[in-house]
Simulated assay, not measured.
Amino acid sequence: MSNQNQPRHAPPDHPPVPQQKIGVVLLNLGTPDATDYLSVRRYLKEFLSDPRVIETNKLVWWPILNGVILSFRPQKSGHAYAQIWDKERNESPLRVITRAQTEKLAERMAEDGVVVDFAMRYGNPSTKSVLDRMQQQGCQKILLVPLYPQYSATTTATANDKAFDALQTMRWQPAVRTAPAYFEDPKYIQVLGDSIRDGVAALPFEPDVVITSYHGMPVEYLKRGDPYHCQCYKTTRLVREYLDWPKEKLMVTFQSRFGPTQWLEPYTDVTLEELPKNGVKKVAILAPAFSADCIETLEEIAMQGKETFMEAGGEEFAYIPCLNDSPAGMDMIEAMVRRELGGWL
């Protein structure tokens, strides 16, 4: 019996499949949306609830976090953010600079048809929202670029974790690559070294010492296998060799410690307090662990650090900015991205 006259079932309606594209997502730490108590509290709660950042047992940590810390710290942090807030754009410098990096990289990659965006591990724009948008734009190959030169589970790993969490919700997952840490990348060392040499040359004084201040980390994390500490020291050593400076001219310290546990030493604030007592009266300082200036560099180092040093008897203090969206900084990011897109472009 023929089925020729029987009705056929039409395929279900579905949205058209967009043309396949390649996407690049610049990942950074995050920022509150405003400086008020609730905005900062919301940001700090997400940040300090991350088990990659605080590895203390939740049963111990959560009462402390939701009790003492989130009751008092948002007001203090909000005041600090207010000191450096971009009032014209009503955003933190971190978001302003990361957006500028994204826009400039997008211009450089436009002829290759690459879609470039940025996301924050904590706060907005969220990693999930950016990956969802990229998928809707047809990006079936996505490169994740954590903007942390030195690897740490507290930064690089948790930024990637958030992206992987978003991928779990997608029925049609894109192919994904993650860019590695670039602490010893020759281009990064060259650009960082040049920024230090040029920054020092532009000063009205000759610093007795230049400090490379890296974000700190509990010593216990190092003991558990985190390579961050070693990579920080290697970055500074390679830069010192590139500049052909004596060992005593460029030193390493660690900043931003939090809580009563032992963190990586030497501490930046203690060092700035001790140097004038040892006859070091003129310093320049930079923060190589940060790809963009933020509260830890503009408020903690450039403002608080200067105050600590000068009150201790220092005479001259200068902060050398991060690479940010400078032409050389963008050259470095573009070179890294193009290398990691090898075989896709």
Rank of each mutant, 00 (worst) to 15 (best):
M109V: 02
D36F: 12
Q150C: 14
E184V: 12
A110M: 08
P32H: 06
V209L: 07
G113L: 00
N124F: 01
V239G: 02
N90S: 14
A34Y: 05
G342Y: 09
R339P: 05
A335G: 15
L27A: 07
I301M: 12
D86C: 10
F118S: 01
Q83H: 12
F72L: 04
Y228W: 11
M120R: 01
L27I: 08
H9P: 15
T156S: 15
D331W: 06
V17Q: 01
L167V: 14
A163K: 07
N324W: 03
G342H: 12
P11N: 07
K282M: 04
K306R: 15
M330L: 14
V239S: 04
A302T: 04
W172E: 09
E55W: 06
T178H: 05
L44D: 10
G123C: 04
R339A: 14
P207A: 04
R99M: 09
V145R: 00
I333G: 00
Y81M: 05
H9S: 14
N57T: 14
A106S: 10
F183I: 08
L345A: 09
Y221N: 10
P93L: 04
R52M: 07
L192S: 09
E340Q: 15
E184T: 15
D33H: 02
Q83G: 11
W62D: 13
V25M: 08
F205A: 05
A292F: 01
G23P: 03
S71L: 12
N278S: 11
E334H: 11
L243W: 11
E296P: 09
R237L: 15
I320K: 00
F254D: 06
W61T: 09
T127C: 07
H79C: 01
P321H: 02
M330D: 06
G329T: 13
D198V: 11
